[in-house]
Structure formats: structure tokens, C-alpha cells
């Protein structure tokens, strides 16, 4: 039995990711159980943990702090594979510019910045914010979660804030939207994505499959 806990702290759409993981489990004929739960004990008992997040960081961090989710994630990161998605990834960083500045968990080294109101591409064309849709992800280093995912595959993004980090050795994927955008980071047994694997069809489902099989080693 492969038990996957999706941390439910009351923010946004956790059902998409749960359904995608269940689907991948069925395709693999794996005996999996997906629990969408805020319960620290159940999360501690799971084999793998998914830390999702959508919406505004202030509200997310308020709930994360209220439910002590930071400690749950930190504990999980010590002992088992963890996948953080979108605002889940941003919440791992030190600080976000969103909502006038919000302190995040500081479990990874990075800052979350706004794309800006006048974002432009190389040719001067104005770019819409949020960055919404399918963009190419360049794999900056090998990782077990990239297995069978072709380099430059497109993944689905929806975000107005993006991670900047000096810890380049942790960056596993980048994309480009007016500026270079960190698409994914990894450290020990955590992998975090700015994009939504659960909404990224074949490429995303392959990454989720790899997560279900990942032992947290490189």
C-alpha cells in the first residue's frame, strides 16, 4: 500500500491533485490510498506527502500557521518524499512580495516576486499577468521525477508571483516569461513545482507517476 497524504489546510482546489494521483495509481495498478487531510498524525503515517496551494499567499500562510502545517511539512521532508505544488512551493521559501510582504516557511532558500504590471517579452510585446497556460520547462539537472519526461515539455502554469533563488544547485527546471522563472526546485527528498502537474496531461501525469515511485534519493 502506497499512502499519499494531500495536506488540506482549507485553501483551494485539492481535488484535482487527488484525482490525478488516484488516476496514476490505477494506471500503474498500484495499491494506493490518497488521503486529503489536515491531520498531522495521518500525514506522518503516510508514505508520501503532497503540499498543494492556490490563491493568495497571505491567506495560505495564515492557515498554514494556524494549523501548524509548516511543522508537518518540515517533519515530512526529513523522512519521506514530498511534492509541493504552486503556492505550496512558494510557501516553502523565505518571503513573498505578495499582499504587501508575507513571511513564508523558510524551508528552502528563495524569495517570491511579482511579475510586475508592465511585463514584456524580448520583442517588447506586453505579457499578460497572471502567467497562465502551457509553457516549456527546461530541465536544468537530472532528477528521478523527470524520468520519461522529455526536456522542454510544456506544463500548465497559473501564477502572478515567481520564485527567485540564489541556490541554483536546487533549481531543477526553468521556464521563461519575460524573465527566467524557476519552474521547479529540489532538495533531498522534496521536489517543488511552480506548474501544476495534475493539470499538465501526459507530462504532468508522468511526473506524478515518478513521485509515486520515488524513494526520495537522487
Amino acid at each position: 500500500m502506497n499512502r499519499i497524504a494531500v495536506i488540506d489546510y482549507g485553501m483551494g482546489n485539492l481535488h484535482s491533485v487527488a484525482k490525478a494521483v488516484e488516476h496514476v495509481g490505477r494506471v500503474l495498478s498500484q495499491d494506493i490510498e490518497v488521503l486529503v487531510t489536515p491531520d498531522a498524525q495521518k500525514i506522518a503515517a503516510a508514505d508520501r506527502v503532497i503540499f498543494p496551494g492556490v490563491g493568495a499567499i497571505r491567506d495560505c500562510m495564515a492557515e498554514i500557521n494556524r494549523l501548524n502545517v509548516g511543522q508537518i511539512v518540515e517533519d515530512a521532508m526529513k523522512s519521506k518524499p514530498v511534492l509541493a505544488i504552486c503556492v505550496g512551493m512558494q510557501a516553502l521559501m523565505n518571503h513573498s512580495e505578495e499582499n504587501g510582504g508575507v513571511d513564508c516557511l523558510g524551508l528552502m532558500d528563495g524569495t517570491v516576486r511579482y511579475f510586475g504590471d508592465d511585463l514584456r517579452d524580448e520583442s517588447g510585446q506586453r505579457l499578460k499577468v497572471p502567467h497562465m497556460g502551457w509553457n516549456e520547462v527546461k530541465q536544468s539537472q537530472d532528477h528521478p521525477l523527470w524520468k520519461d519526461v522529455p526536456d522542454h515539455s510544456r506544463f500548465y502554469f497559473v501564477h502572478s508571483y515567481y520564485v527567485q533563488t540564489a541556490a541554483q544547485e536546487q533549481v531543477t527546471g526553468t521556464t521563461h516569461y519575460g524573465t527566467e522563472v524557476v519552474a521547479s526546485v529540489a532538495d533531498d527528498n522534496i521536489f517543488a513545482t511552480q506548474f501544476h502537474p495534475e493539470k499538465s496531461q501526459t507530462a504532468g501525469l508522468t511526473l506524478l507517476r515518478n513521485f509515486l515511485n520515488w524513494d526520495g534519493q537522487r
Partner: peptide
């Protein structure tokens, strides 16, 4: 590399 226009 650029964001794709979407067909819905």
C-alpha cells in the same frame, strides 16, 4: 520558448 496560445 514562449507561452502557448490556448485552444479551448
Amino acid at each position: 520558448m514562449a507561452l502557448a496560445k490556448r485552444i479551448i
